[in-house]
Nucleic acid binder design. Structure first.
Lengths: 237, 237
DNA sequence: AAGTGGTCTAGACCACTTG
DNA sequence: AAGTGGTCTAGACCACTTT
């Protein structure tokens, strides 16, 4: 196996173990290269890939930092809803429910769990400009997020993914999403102040950590009368 | 400006000018490096980025090739509709209409045209497993695609993007997409064999070439009773 | 065997940020 | 001025494909 890949996975391990903390600077490149016993070019090759995945962040003249799942990154990487006019806004989030239950078939499949496994179920409503726009239902493995509490969830200082990262060492690095249109069911219709059956967008997102390990399933029901779901795949400039 | 970026743009220019043909091999890396007067590392840095954008394709031991907009690449990079079971299939495409008209406000804005500019309007129905699933309306600038004919469009051997690439030197390298749910209008409902008002997915895609120059606006109306629109953002393994 | 891309080295110098 | 990442060089050797 290529050397730079080993270095990359050692860096990932150091992040997951908490040796390198989110937001903190790594040692400089020459020191890291010496520590891993590789040349600077090889060390940079490894760091390059982690920077491309938003796991690390380089700033010329300042240093290399462990990426934080803060509001900025959440908005830019995972929150893909914006107004039809293109305006983006940080949503106001209200927690509706927090339970545990046996995983449904869809949850077990998405999260890679056995049929009998238990999951946390969390329900949120997200508002933009004071109006409810998204109804989120989240499922998390009780094994991966052991001892998660409602209080922890409600009183978190930052984003949900920041909580995953700081309290459970789970760094979300990507997501697979599947979208379809459907008529709003009774529950979503009430929450989003719509007539039942109104066309809404349903997005199922499986967020995953390193090696595509699934970490979270989220079903978002979106009122697209004034907002849209955006997705972009663009070349480097 | 960094040297490798200049090299990258010289390579792009050579592809756009037709000096390097789609599907053909480039000269080997040492020769390219000499030709551009840079070291092999710098040449590789430039090629690395073009490979990441799927513009070039490297195969160890064989060479470096100009990426072709063939069926495989189309399916993998731009056709994001698959069955709920995850099955992907190449669609059967039927041309419904081919016209020119003054650009609408939405078309002019998406394609970066003045209000009075003319566009080609093309309408397709895409079928999967013999059933109509997607109603596509495409708008192209008459300036960028000068002298495009209906016959050219109907009798193209490969994908639409392959036609853009071979006949007009337009290499599509990315796309921005915006999705929302709406009730099917009369035209789409008939084509997709739905009741009018049935929830359907509406995806507006602006495909662009190098430097994010817009090349195509496509409005897709998708019947998501058996299919979904997929979108993935994942870290390198 | 010859030719290709893939990896790795050990430096040099530049551009930027901070004290 | 000192410390950081960003770019570039000129080579060596490896892994893979083709002839």
């Amino acid at each position: 196996m290529a050397l730079y890949r080993q270095v990359k996975h050692e860096l990932i391990a150091d992040i997951q173990s908490g040796k390198f903390q989110p937001g903190k600077a790594l040692p400089n490149e020459t020191e890291l290269a010496q520590r891993f016993g590789v040349s600077i070019g090889t060390l940079r090759h490894a760091v390059d890939e982690l920077v491309a995945d938003h796991v690390l962040l380089r700033q010329q003249g300042r240093g290399t930092f462990v990426g934080q799942q803060d509001n900025d990154r959440f908005m830019y990487q995972f929150f893909k809803i914006e107004g039809r006019d293109g305006l983006r806004e940080f949503p106001q989030i209200r927690l509706l429910a927090f339970d545990t239950a046996r995983a449904s078939a869809e949850e077990a499949q998405a999260l890679g769990l056995r049929g009998a496994a238990r999951v946390f179920r969390i329900e949120n409503v997200l508002s933009l400009q004071g109006r409810p726009v998204v109804h989120d239902r989240i499922a998390l493995s009780c094994t991966l997020f052991a001892r998660l509490t409602r209080a922890q969830f409600e009183q978190r200082p930052g984003t949900i993914y920041e909580l995953y990262q700081r309290a459970f060492g789970v760094t979300v690095v990507g997501a697979d999403e599947r979208a379809r249109a459907e008529g709003a069911d009774a529950a979503s219709a009430t929450l989003l102040q719509l007539a039942e059956g109104t066309p809404v967008l349903r997005v199922a997102r499986v967020a995953h950590t390193f090696d595509r390990q699934p970490a979270e399933l989220r079903i978002s029901i979106i009122d697209t009368r004034a907002h849209e779901f955006v997705s972009s795949a663009s070349a480097t400039p």
